[in-house]
Computed example of a mutant assay.
Amino acid sequence: MRYPTAISRLLDFQIVDVGEGTASLRAEVDPARHGNQQGTVHGGFLVELADAAIGTAHSTLMRPGETFTSIDIRAAFLRPVWSDVLVATARPSHSGRTITHYACDIVRSDGKPAATVTSTVMTLRGERAEGR
Rank of each mutant, 00 (worst) to 15 (best):
1 M>A: 15
1 M>I: 13
4 P>K: 02
4 P>R: 05
5 T>I: 14
5 T>G: 09
8 S>Q: 06
9 R>L: 14
13 F>A: 02
14 Q>Y: 14
15 I>Q: 08
17 D>V: 09
17 D>A: 12
20 E>N: 15
21 G>Y: 02
22 T>F: 02
25 L>F: 00
26 R>Y: 11
26 R>V: 11
28 E>L: 13
31 P>E: 08
32 A>E: 14
32 A>S: 14
34 H>S: 04
35 G>A: 06
37 Q>G: 14
40 T>C: 10
40 T>S: 09
40 T>Y: 04
42 H>W: 10
44 G>H: 06
44 G>D: 10
46 L>Y: 00
48 E>D: 15
49 L>M: 12
49 L>F: 01
49 L>E: 01
51 D>P: 10
52 A>P: 04
54 I>K: 02
55 G>A: 09
56 T>V: 10
56 T>A: 06
57 A>I: 01
58 H>M: 08
64 P>I: 04
65 G>H: 05
67 T>M: 03
68 F>L: 08
69 T>Y: 04
69 T>W: 00
70 S>V: 05
70 S>I: 02
71 I>E: 07
76 A>E: 13
76 A>T: 14
78 L>R: 12
78 L>A: 13
79 R>C: 12
80 P>T: 09
83 S>G: 11
85 V>E: 15
86 L>N: 01
90 A>K: 01
90 A>F: 02
93 S>N: 11
94 H>L: 14
95 S>E: 13
96 G>S: 08
97 R>Y: 10
97 R>M: 13
98 T>K: 12
100 T>V: 08
107 V>F: 03
107 V>D: 04
109 S>R: 10
109 S>E: 12
110 D>E: 07
110 D>L: 05
110 D>P: 04
112 K>V: 10
113 P>W: 06
113 P>A: 12
115 A>G: 05
115 A>C: 10
115 A>K: 00
115 A>T: 01
116 T>D: 07
118 T>M: 12
119 S>K: 05
121 V>G: 05
124 L>G: 04
124 L>K: 07
127 E>D: 15
128 R>E: 14
129 A>N: 08
129 A>Y: 04
131 G>C: 06
131 G>F: 00
131 G>V: 07
